[in-house]
Design a binder for these strands. Structure first.
Lengths: 220, 220
DNA sequence: CGTCACCTAATTGTTGACAATGCGCCGACA
DNA sequence: TGTCGGCGCATTGTCAACAATTAGGTGACG
């Protein structure tokens, strides 16, 4: 978790053009991404305390954005805060994953994938195919990254704000759970399953797509 | 590395029972509650802008807690923030409510209600019965308040942190949607349905409880 | 020997000021 | 007349200082 950055003054001549989305990304989003990634990859383990001032020093910023980032991670179920007592990485039980989180993810992705079916532009298909190709050559963490990117890409194309927003608070818990329990998916199998998903997405059979999603996600 | 601090179920020796969180509640929680209630009751309508400094003046606090409150409401899908452009109350379509939010709510409540079935203490039953009784005499807003309290009480008793946390980000959208579309539930019918829920909760038939929940929630 | 009040250190909660950004206005200019 | 670029305002983003709270230690006292 390293991030030397200096958003100091004196940015006169050249403007840094981040083609991500907004010209300048709020600092808290950067922190949220960093911390979330550290948690879902296992760099931060459950019950690990997160002290605001330590994080602020680490990222070389003030506590304000750090606090906002922690509030958001709390809403994503990755950390837990107790007033005046601090924040710690939160665990999640297999019971809640299998009974609640996975079924919810199926609902979200079924709705999104169905509304995207047959409406993918060539550029989208290419991006998704890239994800799949990357899965075949990467280490477990890279496979999980590509997996995440594949699904997120589809979720974003669905243009359903709440579906996407809820999905963003659900999927990190899933990844964190599997990381913690060493269930790194087999690269070849992951690639195959996503290829099936992409094929179904480009096809016209909604029931096939439904079944493919369900079997892909419901692995527990 | 921090001083080893064990959370969760450890020695329950001298546990100070904080029945409603903490003696001093963070200011942001107060703001979140106020704004959320204003939104779900319709006092704040979609696309209404929320300016940080105006809110700060209204509540007579500084902008810090206001910002944190807005971040949380954003995670609850009630408002939408765009960097440097501000925050506004967010709308939700019937499609997303019926296809995504309601099915998710059914999953959450089914899991929680089942794990609570037969384990309610007399005090809990009394509290739930109180909610039902209040439904029969109140105006639409009070009916909705009692409805919310009934479900929240059960969700809290389930002792499933993620299930509760996700539910808290789902249920406000449901209420906001029904408020905005004038579908205030009939008081008598609401009371009857919740009486059925309570009866099923006190009984021993899980399938009956499942069906009762589904029929109660899936009204669309 | 236990316990209770108090004190201290660590951490979170809150504040007000300052910086940066985006948007609309307005005039110059072809 | 249309549009292009700079200017100013409203608002959000960030910071550093200060206040409040909790947890844990310490010593007096029964």
């Amino acid at each position: 978790m390293t991030s030397g950055r200096s958003r100091g003054s004196s940015a006169s001549s050249s403007r840094k053009l981040t083609l991500s989305s907004s010209l300048t990304r709020p600092l808290r989003e950067e922190i949220v991404d960093e911390l979330r990634y550290a948690i879902v990859t296992g760099d931060l383990e459950p019950n690990q305390r997160l002290v605001e001032e330590d994080l602020a020093r680490t990222f070389e910023i003030s506590r304000g954005p750090v606090r906002e980032a922690l509030r958001q991670l709390e809403q994503e179920g990755l950390v837990e805060s107790t007033p005046h007592r601090g924040t710690a990485v939160l665990d999640i039980s297999e019971a809640e994953i299998s009974e609640v989180v996975i079924p919810i993810r199926i609902i979200l992705e079924t709705s999104a994938f169905l509304s995207v079916q047959g409406r993918l532009r060539p550029a989208d298909v290419a991006k998704l195919q890239d994800c799949i190709d990357n899965m075949r050559v990467g280490d477990p963490r890279e496979v999980a990254d590509a997996d995440m990117l594949f699904h997120r890409t589809v979720m974003e194309r669905a243009r359903k704000p709440h579906t996407l927003q809820i999905w963003q608070t659900i999927s990190p818990r899933v990844r964190a759970f599997f990381t913690r329990h060493g269930q790194s998916a087999d690269a070849a199998q992951s690639a195959d399953e996503h290829q099936q998903l992409l094929d179904a997405l480009c096809g016209t059979d909604p029931d096939l797509l439904r079944r493919t999603i369900r079997e892909h996600i419901a692995v527990l």
